[in-house]
Simulated scan of single mutants.
Amino acid sequence: MTVVMIVVWQTHIALALLFFFFFIIIEGAFMTSLLNKLVQGGWVPFAISAIFIIITLTWTFGRSKKAQYEATWVVDHNKFEKLVTSTTRVPGICFFCTDLINGVPPIVCHYAELIGSIRKVTVFVTVRTLPVRSVLPSERFNIGKLGPTGVYRCLVQFGYMDIHTMEGDEFTRSVVTAFIDAAENQEEKEMLNAAVLDGVVFVLGRVILKMTEKHRCIKKFLINNLYRFLQKNFRSNVATLKIPPRKQLQVGMLYEI
Rank of each mutant, 00 (worst) to 15 (best):
R133T: 10
T240C: 11
T88I: 04
N233F: 13
F19M: 09
R140Y: 03
F22T: 14
I180W: 01
T212M: 08
V238I: 10
N142E: 06
P245G: 14
I223S: 00
E81K: 15
L197D: 00
K66T: 03
F234K: 14
L146N: 06
K214R: 10
T87M: 06
E70R: 04
L136P: 01
V156Y: 07
C217R: 13
A183L: 11
K214A: 07
R235V: 15
F124G: 00
I25A: 13
G41W: 13
A47T: 07
R216H: 14
V135H: 05
K145N: 06
S49I: 11
V203Y: 01
P245W: 13
S86M: 11
L130A: 04
I13R: 09
K247Y: 15
T177A: 12
K145Y: 08
R119P: 04
W59N: 04
K120S: 09
K79W: 07
E256Q: 12
H215V: 05
V125G: 08
P91G: 00
M253P: 02
L38G: 08
D162G: 03
T87E: 09
R216P: 10
G205I: 00
L155P: 03
D162F: 00
T56N: 15
M253I: 07
T85Y: 15
K219L: 06
M161T: 14
P137G: 00
I24A: 15
V127R: 03
L254T: 09
C109W: 07
F20P: 05
I143T: 12
T212Y: 05
V39N: 13
M191V: 08
T122R: 01
E187T: 07
T172Q: 09
F20V: 07
K65S: 10
G168V: 04
T72I: 06
M1P: 12
S138P: 03
C109K: 15
A195Q: 08
N102P: 13
F124L: 04
G116S: 06
T149I: 14
K189I: 09
F96D: 00
S49K: 11
T122E: 01
R206C: 09
L146D: 06
K189L: 06
K214H: 12
A195H: 04
K220Q: 07
E139D: 08
I55M: 05
F22N: 07
E187P: 09
P137F: 01
N102Y: 14
L249Q: 13
F23N: 11
V121R: 10
N142L: 12
V8I: 04
L209D: 05
L155Q: 08
I143E: 00
V251K: 10
A50W: 10
R63T: 12
P148G: 02
V151P: 01
G199S: 07
L38W: 15
G144N: 02
M166R: 07
F95L: 02
F30A: 09
P106T: 02
E256F: 05
I118F: 08
R153A: 12
K120R: 13
T87R: 01
V132I: 04
L38A: 13
G252D: 10
F202C: 00
I115R: 05
G62V: 02
M161Y: 06
V151M: 12
G62T: 02
F23T: 15
A16H: 12
Q250N: 15
A71E: 15
I93W: 00
L83I: 10
